[in-house]
Every structure is written in structure tokens, then in C-alpha cells.
Design a protein around this nucleic acid. Structure first.
Length: 260
DNA sequence: CGGCCTGTTTCCAA
DNA sequence: CTTGGAAACAGGCC
């Protein structure tokens, strides 16, 4: 389920590894998820401890003693999971980090869209992969400059990781719902006021979702996403939510509150 | 069986 | 060359 708030919750979760013993070995169950050279990854992690974590958008970096980083990118269905005994090894574990203490950290990923790799420098990684600043860090001016320059549907632009990283499908829908803007509006046709509103709601939705550690049951009642996952109605007017496709992604909206 | 799904990359067309 | 849209990738669920 990993968009920015989910990955932030994962980051806090894996910080448990910072107090762990060194890595005894790494175990790869599906080669597909290993983006680096496997031999090299093994050598670089052997005997290392984790000393810090960093998250940019949906990307989670874990720093080794050597100051190299292990990157977890979760795709659509990934998550980290600690466990002790092999009998309870999580289903769909794709890579396992074994600590000398016996604790294990599994990179779980049902659909194989997630990736693990070794990164020398985060700054270099950001440049090479066009990973923008975290969506919680972007300035209003930069946000508005970027969005207003695009002719694509505004929802599509909100998903651009290279400008402000971390916004995924449900957050984009929620932000546009809160701002009362139709997801198919062309970004460059939005007024300054609308752009400011989108920025404000983006920060607000992210702030709340992070605070609730991405547990959507704990989200406020005015969030549309709860209804979306429950197949329900608009929290404002009670009308049935509509489902359309924008940029190839399922998109939920209220036609009353988000007129074009 | 067909359709759907929280993400990214790649390919193709304009 | 740039932009944007669609397809591809996998597996499970309804």
C-alpha cells in the first residue's frame, strides 16, 4: 500500500533494525527484486549494521556502517516485516536480511513490482532517477510553477515523482476532492487560487495520513478515501462517488463537489 | 473468465 | 527533443 504516508510508517518500523546486531547474511528468494549485482550486494552488506534511515517520497533508504545505503522501493504491494522463526516467515518474502541475533527482516512483495538495491549516494540516486524532493518538503512556489506548466490532467501531474515525490493514486484523488477540483482539469488551465488550494490540501492530507501512520480507519470522516475503499458516498453531499479512468488509473470523485 | 489494483518504466506517437 | 498516453510488468481476489 505504499504511498508517502505508508512508507513513512515503514521507515519508523524498520528503525528497529538500527539497534540490531550486524547482518549475518542476506538471502534472495526472487532474483527479480534485486536491482544491484547480487554478489556485490552480498559483499557490501555482510557484517554491516544499520545506522540511519531516510525516506524520499515512496523510497526508503537504510544506511550501512560503510555509509552505503540499502534501498527498499515497495512497488504496489511491498512491505517490510520482521520475524524470528522460519515457521512464521511471511508469505511472498522476496529478500531476507538475517541479523546475527537471529532476527530477520523480510522484504515482502506479492506482485513483483518492488525493488531492493545498493546505493552509494542518495543525491546521485536522485539525479540519476529523476527523483524529486519529498512532497512534504516542496515549496508552494515550486509546486505551482511545476503544475501550472503541464498540459496534462491535473491528477496525472500530481503523480509525477520527479517534481515532488510521494503522491500516489489515492492521495491524488483525496487532494483533488478536498480542493473541489475535477481530476481531468488540465493543469495549466487552473487558476492561481485553485493551485494554492491543491497545494494546501496536499500538505494537509499528507500531514494527517502520516500522523495516523497511514491507517485509513483512523482518517477523519471528511476524507473521501474511506468511502472509496468502502464503495460509498460523498462525505459532503452524500451523492454516490463516481469512478472514471484518468491516465490509466482508477479515479474516484464526486461529480457534485468536483465539477469541471 | 474478465476485470481490477496503492507504482514505475518503457515505448510510441504527436 | 519534449510531452503525454498507453502498455507492460505479476499475482491474487472478486
Amino acid at each position: 500500500m505504499p504511498e508517502l504516508p505508508e512508507v513513512e510508517a515503514y521507515r519508523l518500523y524498520v528503525e528497529e533494525a538500527l539497534f540490531e546486531s550486524p547482518i549475518q547474511k542476506v538471502e534472495l528468494l526472487r532474483e527479480k527484486v534485486m536491482k544491484s549485482d547480487w554478489k556485490n550486494f552480498q559483499t557490501a552488506t555482510q557484517g554491516q549494521g544499520f545506522i540511519s534511515t531516510k525516506r524520499i517520497g515512496k523510497y526508503l533508504f537504510m544506511e550501512l556502517d560503510s555509509h552505503q545505503w540499502v534501498l527498499f522501493h515497495f512497488g504496489m504491494t511491498g512491505k517490510p516485516e520482521f520475524y524470528q522463526n522460519e515457521e512464521v516467515k511471511p508469505k511472498h518474502s522476496r529478500l531476507i536480511i538475517h541479523f546475527e541475533s537471529g532476527l530477520k527482516l523480510a522484504f515482502v512483495c506479492m506482485r513483483l513490482f518492488g525493488r531492493v538495491e545498493l546505493v552509494e549516494s542518495i543525491e546521485q540516486y536522485q539525479t540519476d532517477h529523476q527523483l524529486g524532493v519529498d512532497a512534504l518538503e516542496v515549496s508552494e512556489a515550486d509546486f505551482i510553477d511545476y503544475v501550472s506548466a503541464s498540459k496534462a490532467a491535473v491528477k496525472t501531474v500530481l503523480l509525477h515523482q520527479k517534481a515532488f515525490a510521494g503522491v500516489g493514486n489515492w492521495i491524488a484523488d483525496e487532494v483533488l476532492f478536498q480542493a473541489g477540483i475535477h481530476p481531468e482539469e488540465k493543469a495549466y488551465q487552473l487558476s492561481k487560487k485553485q493551485l494554492q488550494s491543491i497545494f494546501k490540501e496536499l500538505q494537509e492530507v499528507l500531514r494527517i495520513a502520516v500522523e495516523k501512520q497511514a491507517d485509513y480507519h483512523a482518517f477523519p470522516d471528511h476524507f473521501m478515501v474511506k468511502e472509496r475503499w468502502g464503495d460509498g458516498n460523498c462525505p459532503i453531499c452524500g451523492e454516490e462517488l463516481q469512478r472514471i479512468v484518468v491516465g490509466g488509473r482508477g479515479t474516484y470523485l464526486c461529480e457534485q463537489e468536483q465539477s469541471k
